[in-house]
Design a protein around this nucleic acid. Structure first.
Lengths: 317, 317
DNA sequence: ATCCTATCCGATCATTTGATCGATCGATGA
DNA sequence: TCATCGATCGATCAAATGATCGGATAGGAT
């Protein structure tokens, strides 16, 4: 019988009494006939040797495991993963919105004035709608990305609008399409005083809640006719897998310079490196885009679902 | 979605972060956006709802589970259970002796004078032999049970002798057979000044380490010819299942008054109710006897093995 | 035999945890 | 609409835990 095994025996006893039996270390000490610090060391040994197996018996357990892995792998401040929706009636789970709203309200609840920026997309929209109404007229909400369609119409229910309505805060909309019709149009737009003013506010934002877009035939950019079929193919050719605020990026999260990116009117991502960008996106299909955003280090926080998280953990770590 | 479920979700998250993730409650609090006491409550809820499953990955885990159950069921001060010996070379495991010696040394190591009483039997004998030598001349060791055979010979290696040799302490042997030849002989023996003196010392003992005997054809009492075949059958008739210091008892641990018990020379068990009697016995076959001793409430501590413990847990709780 | 070294052990202190209490918020009913 | 009851929440304090340090002890080498 090895001396080490004897110690491990004791460690197992101590661990059992502590974790299963719920005794205090003092009780264990007298039970085992060692000093209290001795028990301390035994418990440390037991944990170190992997004798102690803890299992959380709840659906969320998986999520937490992945959350932790992603958190560490990409150095995030937080990573919320909502469980897979059993009934997948609508592809974007309501859970995601609730979880996002949770994070969002952490900022909104504050009393001192706050500037918050928002991207576009279903997830962002659902998130702000899930937020409960609070009176915060001191806050400012600003678009990070244009909210005009190609035909010049504005979406009345942009995230910023909803949020400002709910809180009574100020709204700063970016009166521009996400992707301008041409490089010249883009420069013309960016030259406008109004747009520059909004951009200035956007730069002051402490945090931004943004969606994460995929680049494929189901991409919002394509579906909403911001990019043509030919431009989509160019993007795919250049191995674009996702976009943030309209800025396309490849698998590694590197921005892609191409005919599309040259017409994007949103603030350059690099300019937002300082602020806490929080990605909101879920679904297995969004996986590659989310992973790319993480690899690029663009995000400080992520709210996603089990499907996407699974993809990221399997493919990305 | 129920409000309670939401809370349970949070609790699961908190539990995961705490037990698996190893974060402090403060970290979890900021992670989850609740106050520190809030996390406290969530963790309490998670445990209460059985969300947290801890498993100690070590052979001793079983033993600890049973130990705890027995401890509580019979209100013992301690219950040590040694793992089943893989190689059952000799039926009495060496582990048992080591565990017993561990307990024994807890008393011996003390510096202020101590009076310790001992029973007979293989387990007791093995236990004192497993003890390491320490100089403790201030201690006194006394037999609780006669150490003479039927033919008048004394066992030179009685537990008391060994213990006194190892420590340099005083020895008080009981010069009598466990069971006298007749009631008259018993009274004659008990009338002797010497024996009375020894008995007086025994009563002063703080603790007693005693074996637990079975009552059947393999019983020590029978094998060593202290009781005849007829007397054995009488005991079995009266449903005796075990004995402590020669005193036979039934399944419920109640002492049995019969021709044998009337000739037992040991101190009446009731007289030892005040002192800490510690039972040393192992093996599946000893199970019923040990269980009876426990049920009778005679023991304050128990050192046994996995086999016997299994029997006790299965049959006795 | 003696000295050296390495390891282990226990006292002490900072941190973390658990529990209690008062306060506040919301709900319910008059 | 107001009052009252209940529940929940956070401040505070005691207990338990984890970590560091100095000292002791055992083993090994000279």
């Amino acid at each position: 019988m090895d001396k080490f095994d004897l110690k491990l025996d004791q460690a197992a006893r101590a661990a059992w009494l502590s974790y299963v039996g719920g005794r205090t270390q003092d009780e264990i000490a007298s039970q085992l006939g060692v000093s209290r610090p001795g028990v301390q060391r035994l418990l440390a040994l037991a944990r170190q040797e992997g004798l102690v197996k803890v299992h959380i018996d709840h659906p969320l357990s998986n999520c937490m495991v992945m959350s932790d892995a992603i958190l560490k792998a990409f150095d995030l401040e937080f990573c919320d993963i909502v469980p897979a929706d059993a009934q997948t009636t609508d592809n974007s789970s309501h859970y995601l919105a609730v979880a996002g709203a949770e994070r969002l309200s952490r900022y909104i609840d504050r009393n001192d004035p706050l500037t918050l920026s928002l991207g576009t997309g279903r997830s962002v929209r659902a998130t702000v709608e899930a937020l409960s109404r609070v009176e915060r007229p001191q806050h400012r909400f600003v678009s990070l990305v244009g909210n005009m369609a190609r035909d010049g119409s504005s979406n009345r229910y942009d995230g910023v609008m909803v949020l400002a309505d709910k809180t009574g805060g100020d709204r700063f909309l970016l009166p521009a399409p996400v992707v301008a019709g041409s490089v010249e149009e883009k420069h013309a737009l960016l030259g406008q005083r109004l747009i520059q003013a909004v951009a200035d506010v956007a730069k002051q934002a402490e945090a931004g809640f943004i969606g994460i877009g995929r680049i494929d035939r189901h991409a919002t950019l394509f579906q909403d006719h911001f990019i043509s079929e030919g431009e989509l193919e160019e993007l795919l050719e250049l191995e674009a897998v996702g976009e943030l605020l309209g800025w396309p990026m490849n698998q590694a999260g590197e921005l892609i310079d191409c005919s599309t990116s040259q017409r994007v009117t949103s603030l350059p991502l690099a300019m937002l490196r300082e602020q806490t960008l929080i990605g909101l996106a879920g679904g297995r299909d969004k996986g590659p885009a989310i992973l790319a955003s993480l690899r690029g280090g663009w995000l400080k926080g992520l709210v996603t679902d089990e499907h996407a998280a699974r993809y990221i953990v399997d493919a990305g770590l």
